[in-house]
């Protein structure tokens, strides 16, 4: 912006010397007047219900605010943060969220990637569109209803999964059937599989957008040069998809660490369950039960967010575009 206004200012020097002194400022003010009205609505919502709540929870995290007593909260400095850092339940919650994220990430990236590569090779335009539409259906379903659906799927009494495993395939008996949402070893895998089901179509679209940038005659040229299918895949396709893969990995790392609704609906407030992560702990502290320690909950939220953002920053640094 500065460059252009300077260039235009120098261009006008010859004709109107008086305008040069104030033209930079004048130009910026004029540009702001003509462009910022377009941004007003966005700024209203962004400041009012994004920046202000973040600031407000930051301020609360230094107080003893709770919902029960009506007294104004007292400033208690860093005490909440000291307590969070020594809180066994908090660190367990971070650890649980990390384990879920590690189970979740590979399936959320690679299943859609393979699906996209295969759809991209479908020659019949209509069949390819049909695949896309069917795979996108879960992306249109409201999130709590995704979780209700899979509560049904995993249910021991009416769920079709265990019906097939026990009654049809005889792989298990009623006593040994998998307890998808009760077994601590299985629960994260069960929830992750649900997330893969949910996100398959949407993430496939991202990879398809990347594949669409590969010129159609490139595979033919590679073939003429004698490159095999695998060399073509590793030499061209992977490099085109890598940036998308890395961005999705960082974005999905962030969303997986902050998962909360899934855990609330599928695991509730049971502290012994793996679904009791730092996010559920924060919500439990802030809105559940009698006293509702909002100040302490805000501190939990901030320490969790800072840990998460630190990892995101490291990932951005590792994945930064070189050359």
């Amino acid at each position: 912006m500065g460059d252009t206004s300077v260039a235009e200012a120098t261009a006008t020097v010859a004709t109107t010397p008086a305008a040069t002194t104030r033209s930079g400022w004048w130009r910026t003010a004029k540009d702001m007047l003509s462009s910022y009205p377009y941004l007003l609505i966005a700024i209203f919502f962004f400041v009012g219900w994004q920046i202000l709540p973040i600031y407000s929870s930051f301020r609360l995290s230094f107080t003893d605010d709770n919902f029960l007593d009506q007294n104004p909260p007292n400033f208690i400095g860093l005490q909440n943060y000291r307590e969070v850092l020594g809180d066994q339940l908090f660190w367990q919650g971070i650890q649980r969220a990390l384990i879920f994220t590690l189970v979740f990430l590979p399936g959320m990236i690679f299943i859609p990637m393979i699906t996209a590569i295969f759809i991209d090779r479908v020659k019949n335009e209509r069949v390819a569109t049909l695949y896309r539409i069917i795979l996108l259906i879960p992306a249109m379903i409201p999130s709590p209803l995704i979780f209700v659906l899979w509560l049904w799927m995993y249910n021991n009494y009416i769920g079709p999964i265990n019906y097939i495993l026990v009654d049809k395939l005889n792989l298990f008996t009623l006593a040994t059937q998998p307890q998808w949402l009760q077994d601590p070893k299985l629960i994260f895998l069960s929830i992750a599989a649900m997330e893969w089901w949910w996100g398959l179509g949407y993430h496939t679209m991202f990879f398809l957008a990347g594949l669409a940038t590969i010129p159609k005659d490139l595979p033919d040229a590679a073939r003429v040069d004698g490159a095999g299918e695998w060399r073509m895949f590793w030499g061209v396709t992977v490099w085109r998809l890598l940036p998308i893969l890395l961005v999705l990995m960082v974005v999905r790392f962030g969303s997986a660490m902050a998962v909360i609704t899934e855990y609330l609906i599928m695991g509730g407030y049971d502290r012994t369950k793996n679904t009791y992560t730092w996010t559920v702990y924060m919500y439990d502290t802030a809105f559940n039960g009698g006293v509702q320690f909002r100040g302490y909950a805000a501190a939990i939220g901030w320490v969790g967010a800072i840990i998460m953002l630190a990892v995101v920053a490291v990932m951005f640094y590792i994945f930064r575009p070189r050359d």
């Binding site: 941004l39 962004f46 009012g48 219900w49 994004q50 202000l52 709540p53 973040i54 600031y55 407000s56 929870s57 930051f58 609360l60 960082v250 974005v251 962030g254 660490m257 902050a258 909360i260 996010t279 924060m282 919500y283 802030a286 809105f287 909002r294 909950a297 805000a298 939220g301 901030w302 969790g304 967010a305 998460m308 953002l309 995101v312």
Partner: peptide
Amino acid sequence: ILTALLVASMFFPTQVTAIVGIFSI
């Protein structure tokens, strides 16, 4: 700067960390 702010907001877990703030507002 506006674009950078928007990108940053996409990574901040507003719905979790700031829900206490949203409630009080």
